[in-house]
Amino acid sequence: MGIGMTGQERFEQLIASDEKVEPTDWMPEGYRKTLIRQIAQHAHSEIIGMQPEGNWITRAPTLRRKAILMAKVQDEAGHGLYLYSAAETLGVGRDELVEHLHSGRHKYSSIFNYPTLTWADIGAIGWLVDGAAITNQVMLTRCSYGPYARAMVRICREESFHQRQGFEIMLTLCRGTPEQKQMAQDALNRWWWPALMMFGPHDTDSTHTQQSMAWKIKRVSNDDLRQQFVDMTVPQAEYLGLTIPDPELKWNPERGHYDFGEIDWDEFWRVVKGFGPESRDRLAHKVRAWEEGAWVREAAAAYAAKHRKEAA
């Protein structure tokens, strides 16, 4: 710390000079709470996000696809664990984070409250949902909080496989029978708008965005990220020969971007408030798995205690 500098001054200097804030640094209480909330929500999303895809592991069409899907779902578990560890550097306990998820005080991304109805949904999720996640997470590698940024670097290295395997599923279906191609189109129809919703409300309606941008937790606005995602994805859909379900989607040569239609914000807020098609089942399943696994955690703790005593 510079001579005579207060914690607050030092924090502001770190942010201004684009240096990372580390766990032992003084930080404003608001910064800490915002980060705990955001990192925890991110961690919970990775964990709950295993369910829609896990749903198809036993029904993957080939052994190759099954091995790939298991690896992807295992990665998402890993992402959840990196992120819980990052949140814990802010002083919050793992038990507390899990309790907040289970009680509903902490939310997770709405996207995981939609059902996976066909195998093509697994393709659409990898391509669109992981694609949207990458757009967001690449930005977060530059987040001002060191442990979060480092977790993001690790995660981004793994996400690219997720998106590519999803696109490959879509490509295989699109090159298959007319029925298979229709399956892919149907999945795109159902996942397109929820994927765009992942970027959150418009910048003008996003109350906390400004503070997060000032703290450099967040470095690109919701609308800019969403535009990036649309611009990146439209040509990929064209390559697949699929139609994006938006009549207003059109290249705008003046802006150098695609114009696109308005999100159904009523649906958006309905799902955020916990009334998504799968909201209740996802959380109930998570709580049940936690409770049914209690004996494993207790047995492991008892085993460790016994061996500690023997060693003493």
Binding site: Q38, Q41, H42, S45, E46, K107, Y108, S109, S110, A132, A133, T135, N136, Q137, M139, M198, F199, G200, P201, S206, T207, H208, K218, N222, L225, W269, V272, K273
Partner: peptide
């Protein structure tokens, strides 16, 4: 943003 849930 992607995994951040907007505040109600």
């Amino acid at each position: 943003m992607t995994y951040e849930v907007p505040r109600t």
